[in-house]
């Protein structure tokens, strides 16, 4: 299997792991206790590392394979909007995800001195929910882009 496909797989896998970590954080905050908030902080750190890792995993493949090989195929195919709209939007909104996740994680650590009743958890859980929604929407957009390549290749691929 070419390295490009491995990197795309790693990118998707690591990104979804990050999304699941923040879903875990969200659940722990909703049912919060001292013990669950300690688990939430661990999950948030893992999630932030994964969400930054998601971008690092795809950087080289995006530049060396997507741009020269996949993008021209998509633009010549029947779904050029998959690059012009979906990929362009995806690649930039993806930059927001680790930043929002990092913000939520720092806030989560900051809130630990305030006890389980801190109103800050309401806002932190909102950011966690946003991270989950955005990360899973990236997977949906990735499906559209890979579909555009298969459609462009044709032959029932």
């Amino acid at each position: 299997m070419p390295a490009f496909h491995t990197f795309v797989g790693a990118h998707a896998l690591i990104g979804e792991f990050g999304a699941v970590c923040f879903l875990w954080v969200l659940v722990e905050i909703i049912n919060r206790s001292e013990a669950s908030l300690a688990r939430a902080r661990i999950a948030a750190v893992l999630g932030v590392i994964a969400l930054f890792g998601m971008l690092v995993a795809i950087e080289n493949a995006y530049v060396t394979h997507y741009g020269p090989a996949a993008k021209p195929l998509i633009l010549k195919g029947s779904m050029p909007w998959a690059h012009n709209l979906v990929m362009e939007t995806k690649e930039h909104i993806a930059l927001f995800i680790p930043i929002v996740a990092l913000c939520a994680t720092i806030a989560l650590f900051h809130a630990r001195t305030e006890g389980t009743g801190s109103p800050a958890y309401r806002y932190i859980s909102m950011l966690c929910g946003l991270v989950v929604l955005m990360a899973f929407s990236m997977a949906g957009m990735g499906f559209i882009i890979s579909t555009a390549v298969r459609v462009a290749v044709g032959g029932g691929v």
């Binding site: 927001f96 806002y123 909102m126």
Partner: peptide, 20 residues
């Protein structure tokens, strides 16, 4: 939460949605 600035986290969410 107002004094602590925790409500500012709400603006992070709003900014993210608007910029997206």
């Amino acid at each position: 939460p107002v004094e602590s600035g925790a409500t500012n986290l709400l603006w992070v969410g709003a900014t993210t949605v608007v910029c997206s």
